[in-house]
Amino acid sequence: SSGAIIYTVELKRYGGPLGITISGTEEPFDPIIISSLTKGGLAERTGAIHIGDRILAINSSSLKGKPLSEAIHLLQMAGETVTLKIKKQTD
């Protein structure tokens, strides 16, 4: 049976990049997913974020019904501590 787990990851960026690339579309209900991780970057080092994971919220702002451009804007405005709500498929 296919299921999913949902969890929250807190990234402290200390002025540096998060080390993630996200992808999606401008269709508001398409998923926003992690499309790549910078090798040795902040997100990869947590061990908790993987390519293909879906981002449900950024700093408690839900991405439900929001296009990719809004998600990118939220990441850019997120500040030093970025909290990502992640949904991972478990097959």
Rank of each mutant, 00 (worst) to 15 (best):
I20F: 14
G52V: 03
E26D: 10
E10T: 12
S1H: 10
S36D: 15
I58Q: 00
G47D: 04
I34K: 00
K12I: 08
S69K: 10
I20L: 15
M77V: 13
G47A: 08
I58K: 01
M77S: 11
P17E: 15
G15N: 12
V9S: 00
N59D: 08
P31I: 04
R45M: 07
Q76V: 06
D30A: 09
S2F: 09
G40L: 03
I58D: 04
I6L: 05
G15I: 07
S69C: 07
E70Q: 11
E70M: 09
E80Q: 06
G52A: 05
I22T: 03
S61K: 11
E10F: 04
R45P: 03
I34L: 01
S23N: 08
D53G: 00
S69G: 05
T83I: 14
I32T: 03
G19W: 00
G15K: 13
A57R: 06
G52Q: 04
A78R: 06
I22E: 03
S1K: 11
P67V: 09
I5M: 15
T21K: 11
G40S: 06
G52D: 00
I32S: 02
M77Q: 10
S69V: 07
L37D: 01
T25W: 01
G3C: 11
Y14E: 15
K66E: 05
M77A: 12
S61N: 10
I6R: 06
G16H: 06
S23M: 07
M77F: 09
G16R: 07
F29K: 12
I33M: 13
K64C: 09
P31G: 15
D30L: 03
E27G: 11
I58M: 01
G40V: 06
P67D: 04
I34V: 13
N59E: 03
K64W: 10
S60W: 04
S1T: 07
G47F: 02
A57E: 12
L37F: 04
G16Q: 10
G16V: 01
R13K: 14
A57G: 08
T8N: 12
G3N: 14
S61Y: 10
E27P: 02
G15C: 08
G65E: 07
N59H: 03
T8I: 05
G24N: 06
I33R: 06
I33N: 06
I72N: 12
I32C: 06
L11F: 09
E26A: 05
K66N: 00
S35P: 01
E10Y: 07
A43R: 00
Y7K: 15
H50N: 11
S23K: 15
T8Y: 07
I34R: 03
G41I: 01
Y7H: 15
N59R: 00
E44W: 06
A4K: 13
A43W: 02
Y14S: 15
Q76C: 10
E27W: 08
G65L: 05
S23G: 13
G3P: 14
G3E: 14
T21I: 06
P28N: 07
T38N: 11
I6C: 04
A4Q: 10
L37H: 00
R54W: 10
Q76T: 10
G41R: 01
P31R: 01
D53W: 04
I20Y: 01
P31F: 03
T46G: 11
S69F: 07
H73L: 12
R13N: 11
T46W: 02
A43P: 03
S2V: 03
E27Q: 12
D53M: 02
P67T: 12
P67N: 09
R13M: 08
G24P: 03
G16C: 04
M77K: 14
G47Y: 01
S61A: 13
N59S: 03
S35W: 09
E26C: 07
P31E: 04
G52W: 03
E27C: 10
K64Q: 07
P31S: 13
S60M: 07
Q76I: 03
R13F: 01
I55A: 00
S23Q: 13
L68K: 11
N59V: 03
K66V: 13
Y7Q: 15
F29P: 14
L42I: 14
L18W: 13
K66F: 02
I32N: 01
A4V: 09
L11C: 00
S61M: 12
I32Q: 03
S23R: 06
I55M: 10
S2E: 11
L37P: 00
R13E: 01
T25K: 06
K64N: 11
I5G: 15
G52P: 04
S1N: 14
T25C: 12
T46M: 13
E44G: 01
I32Y: 09
I34C: 10
D30P: 04
S35I: 10
R54T: 12
L63S: 09
T21R: 13
R54I: 10
L18K: 01
P17Q: 15
L84W: 15
A43V: 06
D30Q: 11
D30S: 12
K12C: 05
K66Y: 07
I6T: 09
I58P: 00
G19D: 03
G40R: 04
Y7S: 12
S60L: 02
E26P: 05
D53V: 00
A43H: 04
D30V: 06
Y14L: 15
K12S: 05
R13V: 09
S1A: 04
L18Y: 07
T38E: 15
Q76L: 05
P31A: 09
I20S: 02
T21D: 05
G52Y: 02
S35G: 05
I34H: 05
G40H: 12
R54D: 05
L68C: 09
Y7N: 13
D53T: 01
T8C: 05
I22C: 10
G65F: 05
E70D: 15
I33Y: 11
A57Y: 07
G24Y: 09
L42T: 15
I55F: 02
G47C: 08
G41M: 02
S35H: 09
P17C: 13
S23Y: 07
T8S: 07
A43K: 00
S1C: 06
R45T: 09
Q76H: 13
A4G: 15
E70V: 12
S36A: 09
G41C: 11
R54Y: 09
K12T: 07
L42V: 10
L37R: 04
A43E: 01
I6F: 06
T8V: 08
T38Y: 00
F29H: 10
G16T: 06
G41L: 02
I5A: 09
S61V: 12
T46P: 04
G19T: 02
M77T: 12
S23D: 15
K66Q: 07
S60P: 01
G40P: 02
P17D: 08
T25P: 01
L37Y: 12
G19S: 03
A78E: 09
E10V: 11
T46Y: 04
G65T: 08
G40Y: 10
I55K: 01
L11Q: 01
G52S: 03
V82I: 09
S35E: 01
L37T: 02
I33G: 08
Y7D: 10
V9T: 03
L11P: 02
I58T: 00
G79R: 15
D53C: 02
S1Q: 11
P17L: 05
R13C: 08
E26H: 11
T46R: 03
G40K: 03
L56C: 08
I58S: 00
G65Q: 06
E26K: 15
P28H: 08
I58A: 02
Y14T: 15
T46V: 06
V9Q: 01
G19C: 00
I34Y: 04
K12W: 04
T38P: 06
K66I: 10
S1Y: 14
Q76N: 11
E27D: 12
S61D: 10
S23E: 13
Q76A: 13
Y7T: 15
K64P: 06
P31V: 11
Q76W: 06
Y7V: 09
P17F: 05
I32F: 08
L18F: 06
T38W: 12
Y14I: 14
T21H: 11
I5C: 09
A78F: 01
K39D: 05
S1L: 08
T8W: 05
I32W: 01
P67G: 13
R45G: 12
T21S: 09
G47S: 08
E70C: 07
R54C: 12
S61R: 14
P17M: 07
G40C: 03
Q76D: 12
L56H: 01
D53K: 00
E44Q: 07
F29Y: 15
K39M: 06
D30W: 09
S69D: 06
A4N: 15
P28Q: 06
L37Q: 04
M77W: 06
S2T: 14
G40M: 05
I5P: 15
N59I: 02
N59M: 00
I6G: 04
L68G: 04
Y14Q: 14
P31L: 01
P28I: 07
A57C: 09
S2Q: 09
K64R: 11
P67H: 07
I20A: 03
L68N: 00
S35F: 04
K64S: 11
E70I: 06
E70K: 10
G65I: 02
I5N: 14
S23P: 03
L42S: 10
A57I: 00
L75S: 15
G16W: 04
I6V: 06
G19V: 00
G52C: 03
E26V: 07
I34P: 00
D30Y: 05
S2K: 14
A57N: 08
L56K: 00
S69N: 06
L37C: 05
G65C: 08
S36N: 15
T25D: 01
I34F: 02
E10H: 07
I34D: 03
F29C: 12
G41K: 03
Y14N: 15
Y7E: 15
G52I: 00
E10A: 03
K64E: 09
L11H: 03
K66R: 13
A43Y: 00
S36F: 05
I55T: 02
Y7W: 10
Y14G: 11
S23V: 15
